[in-house]
Design a protein around this nucleic acid. Structure first.
Length: 475
RNA sequence: GGCCCGUUCGUCUAUCGGUUAGGACACCAGGUUUUCAACCUGGGAAGAGGGGUUCAACUCCCCUACGGGCUGCCA
């Protein structure tokens, strides 16, 4: 249940954000988190911000940042303003750490890594809590040594911290379970825990929609908000996406960068639809456009349990989106796919034929490689290379019949019905069914058996091309 | 180990105490068909287990099991 106090004044604009750490590509879980934030902001006239959490200098790379931006762009998730670098704001973070120090809500801790490690080992051996208890928490500043220190939050020891989560409800965490987290490292840089809070506050973020793995962090972060006297944002922790075996996502089942999905030929619209539907629902609606998603999306529709990635369903949705796309919009997407997947680009002639053939191609393909495969009659070179199975089909009916068909085709006007009638006439003259002729005809036109209907292919290619291809075979 | 979260067909999910537990993907069977596909019809398929509360529980509470997360000077 959503508590009353989660409701913000109407006047306050919704501001959401996506805050990935640039240590790798944009994976599927991150993409969905970004999508949810985007949908929520866009559906409410709010803002969707992008912040790169690059405070971990060791692991952050500019390449990863680029990959994440490309992934978001491909998915059509546009953010407002410039993407901000968290690291660039480190002075502000440090200032807040010192402000907490001044307020008596934080303290300097001079414990070394070794001391902390020793503490933990001892604690484990004695089966005590391994949460570090710093001896410096209440130390007299006069006793402070002259050596590097970190600034730790002086977390309350008693009571509990409550996280009012829109998805999970009220979550209570005993303060005894939370330690004095480090806010400022000994090198003066902020930790994630401090930086997120400061940035979210400074950027005016009203709704924090993020992965469930941050639920416990929300309690820790709440302490910082409270120490600084800032308003706590609305939390919405969304369940994680698991792999197809229900276990953690791994390479084998979906832990790929979203760019790899593009390279595999999934259209962005289908991907968006699938990801939106994974962990969120709007009644029984399965197939919808982005506009509908923006309109329907709300936090109430988010589920509480983790979900598994299902390529079959993704494909099914993608197929529907390809079929529903306007030909003119589909063509550039196909060309982008050809490009990222390292396939040859379309020639001008092929592009023209592709545009004309899309009407009969898009209903038959779930993903782009399949569409390309079915477009073989457009893309193949002449003379048309006949594959084994197709050659067998040609042998079933003599090439003579096809030769006989050639003049017939010269006399028909190019409507589908007349084409079909002309071929049927020849078939009947030989006591054969239409199918017996259509198969070999298809082989002659496309060189293979997997293609749209012969008549569709003939309409797309045009009379001259068909006659030429037939003569290639019958010559 | 401690704490937190989760658990409806194989999968994604609907259900906000009273339903023959619905839909979609996948699967199976049949039909249609100029191949593949598409399409049409039909079918099998679920409330983790155990206790409560209630006239009534998938829905509320507790326990157990299982899965996940946090427990870092990572994010």
């Amino acid at each position: 249940m959503v508590s009353e106090r989660l409701t913000l004044p109407m006047s306050r604009q919704v501001i959401t954000r996506f805050a990935p750490s640039p240590t790798g590509y944009l994976h599927i879980g991150g993409a969905r988190t970004a999508l949810f934030n985007w949908l929520y902001a866009r559906g409410r006239g709010g803002k969707f911000l992008l912040r790169i959490e690059d405070t971990d200098r060791e692991r952050s790379t500019p390449e990863a940042t680029e990959a994440i931006l490309r992934g978001l762009k491909w998915l059509g998730l546009d953010w407002d303003g410039e993407a901000t670098s968290q690291f660039a704001r480190k002075d502000r973070h440090a200032a807040v750490a010192y402000a907490m120090l001044a307020k008596g809500r934080a303290y300097k801790c001079f414990s070394t890594q070794e001391e902390i490690e020793a503490f933990r080992q001892a604690a484990e051996a004695e089966k005590r809590s391994t949460l570090f208890v710093s001896p410096w928490r209440d130390a007299d500043p006069a006793s402070h040594p002259d050596r590097p220190f970190v600034i730790r939050m002086k977390a309350p020891r008693d009571g509990e911290t409550v996280v009012e989560d829109t998805v999970l409800g009220t979550v209570r965490v005993a303060n005894a379970q939370l330690d004095d987290m480090v806010c400022l490292r000994s090198d003066g840089t902020p930790t994630y825990m401090l930086a997120v809070v400061v940035d979210d506050h400074d950027m005016g973020v009203t709704h924090v929609i993020r992965g469930n793995e941050h639920l416990n962090n929300a309690a820790r972060q709440t302490m910082i908000y409270q120490a600084m006297g800032w308003d706590v944002p609305v939390w919405a922790h969304i369940p994680l996406i698991n792999g197809t075996d229900g276990k953690k996502l791994s390479k084998r089942h979906g832990a790929l960068g979203v760019e790899e999905y593009q390279a595999m030929g999934y259209p962005a619209a289908g991907m968006r639809n699938y990801l939106t539907r994974l962990g969120w629902s709007h009644g029984d609606d399965e197939f919808f456009t982005s506009a509908q998603a923006v309109k329907w999306f709300d936090l109430k529709g988010i589920g509480r349990s983790p979900s598994q990635f299902d390529f079959k369903k993704l494909e099914s949705l993608c197929g529907q989106h390809i079929a529903a796309s306007a030909d003119a919009a589909l063509l550039p997407e196909i060309e982008a796919f050809l490009n990222v997947s390292g396939r040859p680009a379309l020639t001008d002639a092929q592009r023209d034929l592709m545009l004309r053939g899309l009407y009969c191609l898009k209903d038959r393909a779930k993903i782009f490689p399949e569409l390309i495969d079915k477009a073989h009659f457009i893309l193949c070179s002449r003379p048309v290379p006949i594959e084994e199975g197709a050659a067998k089909a040609l042998d079933t009916v003599s090439r003579g019949i096809l030769a006989e068909l050639t003049p017939q085709l010269q006399n028909v006007s190019w409507t589908r019905d007349e084409l079909e009638a002309a071929v049927a006439k020849v078939a009947a003259a030989h006591g054969l069914g239409l199918g017996k002729i259509a198969g070999p005809l298809r082989a002659a036109i496309a060189g293979r058996t997997v293609s749209p209907s012969v008549f569709d292919m003939m309409l797309v290619l045009g009379r001259n091309e068909i006659l030429a291809r037939l003569s290639d075979v019958t010559a």
